[in-house]
Structures are given as structure tokens and as C-alpha cells.
Amino acid sequence: MPQISQFAENWYAASQIFWVLLTFGFVFFVIGRGMLPKIEATVDARDRKVADDLAAAKAAHAAADALEESYRQQGDASRAAAQKAVADAKDKAAKDAEKRLAKVDAELAEKLAAAEADVSAARTSAMAEIESVAAEAASDLVARLSGVKVGAADARSAVKAVLHG
């Protein structure tokens, strides 16, 4: 096995150690200490950027959600307000109509009552006229038939008795 037997040779161990020291030293100082941290920094920067971007996207998403929510609430509120306005207007219109109707009703009732009063007044005056005319006619008839002059008051009471039963 040369790995062991070559140790006996004067140059073997010294050369191996010297060269591994040199080459591994190069690898450690130039690659490990020099290049690796820069590559790791790049990876870290990328990871951070990705994380930041993700956080920003999440924040934007949340903001959009909040905006949508407020928009929805605003919509709901304005819809409710509109519905209330419509209901109020309807209410008011109905009340107005009622009031006007009541007023018209009252006026009509008043007119009706006046007309009824007129009619009954006319009827009583007409009745009275009928009575006096009938009394005159009755006294005329009596005078012509019997020649007896009947007093106006008698004629009237007699006619009244006949007219009113």
C-alpha cells in the first residue's frame, strides 16, 4: 500500500503536507473567505427581497380587502338611505293625500248639510204656502158653494187638520 510505504520516503510527507497546506489554504482564503460570503450575501439579499415583496403584497391585499369592505359598507349605507328617503316620501305623500281628502270630505259634508238645510227650508216655506193657498181655495170654495164666509183663521186650521191628518 503506497499510502503507508511511501511514508518511508524522505520527500513524501513533507511534500504532501506542504501542498495540501498551500492548496487548501488557497481554497479556504480565496474561495471560503473571499467568495462564499459574497454569494451568501446575494442569497440573503434575494431572500430578504422576496420576503419584503411578499409582505408588501400581503399588505396591499389587506388594504384592498379593507377598501372593498368600506366600499361595500358605503354602498349598503347609501342604499339604506335611499330606501329611507323613498319610504319617507311615500309616507309624506300618503299623509298629504289623507289630509287633503279629509279636507275635501269636510267641505263636501258642509255643502251637503247646507243644501239639505236649504231643501228643508224650501220645503217648509212651500208647505206654508200650500197651506195658505189651500186655505184660501177652501174658503173660496165654501163661499161659492154655500155663500158662507169662512174666517181665514178657521180655514187655515181646517186645512191644517186635513193636511196633517
Partner: peptide
């Protein structure tokens, strides 16, 4: 220190490895 240091095939391949890695 009485030891001879030589350039060997082993050294050559270590240098190749280092350079390739670099």
C-alpha cells in the same frame, strides 16, 4: 528541515482541484 519538498502528481491534482473550484 532535512526533508525534501517536491512537486508531485498529488500536488498537481490538488492544484487542479483548487483551480477548478475557483
Amino acid at each position: 528541515g532535512g526533508h525534501e519538498v517536491a512537486f508531485t502528481t498529488s500536488a498537481l491534482w490538488m492544484i487542479v482541484a483548487g483551480v477548478l473550484l475557483w
